[in-house]
């Protein structure tokens, strides 16, 4: 298991060097192409206009620390009876540290029965993910959660 030769060492440097920052893989690919807060706020304005989102009703379940920045599970759930005259119309997911602020928009109907969906998303770096819910009465609700993207290792 000797790795004393220069060539082996070089190979190791390449392998581990790439690996040490693997969790930030997407970050390395697009180091400066990140949406900032302003970009996310601009998109939100496009989506909901001048309405001011209230806190509450919408819940966003995500891991506090991402295991894999390429595939981070998320579940958004909205407190709504989901009846024909009172239902959650759409949930928008935004991210304020990705190359683009938009993640997805999920439109429900009363036939959905339950205002909840799950998917998996990419996170270029540690950032806030936003869930913005629009109800059939026009009210808008939102929540944010921070997800850390770390180098990993060194645990326990």
């Amino acid at each position: 298991m000797s790795t004393g030769t220069a060539a082996t060492r070089r190979r190791m440097i390449e392998q581990v060097g790439a690996g040490v920052l693997a969790a930030g893989g997407l970050l390395l690919l697009a180091p400066r192409a990140r949406a900032d807060l302003v970009k996310a706020q601009k998109l939100m304005k496009e989506l909901i206009g001048d309405r001011t989102p209230q806190e509450g009703k919408v819940r966003l379940e995500m891991p506090q620390i991402a295991e894999n920045g390429q595939s981070v599970p998320l579940t958004a759930a909205v407190d709504s009876p989901m009846t024909p005259d009172n239902y959650c119309r759409v949930v928008h997911i935004l991210a304020d540290g990705n190359p683009e602020a938009g993640v997805c928009s999920f439109e429900f109907t009363p036939m959905s029965g339950r205002a909840e969906f799950s998917t998996r998303m990419r996170l270029a770096q540690t950032q806030n993910v936003w869930a913005v819910a629009e109800m059939s009465d026009g009210s808008v609700w939102m929540t944010k959660t921070e997800v850390k993207v770390t180098i990993g290792g060194c645990g326990g």
């Binding site: 390429q70 683009e100 439109e107 036939m111 959905s112 969906f117 998917t119 998996r120 998303m121």
Partner: peptide, 24 residues
């Protein structure tokens, strides 16, 4: 034939998209 739900996806959605939801 009746719409239950619909999703708009952007590039931030992971490869091999997983989508789960409910229907009454």
């Amino acid at each position: 034939g009746k719409p239950v739900c619909e999703m708009t996806l952007h590039p931030a959605i992971s490869a091999n998209p997983f989508i789960s939801f409910f229907a009454k």
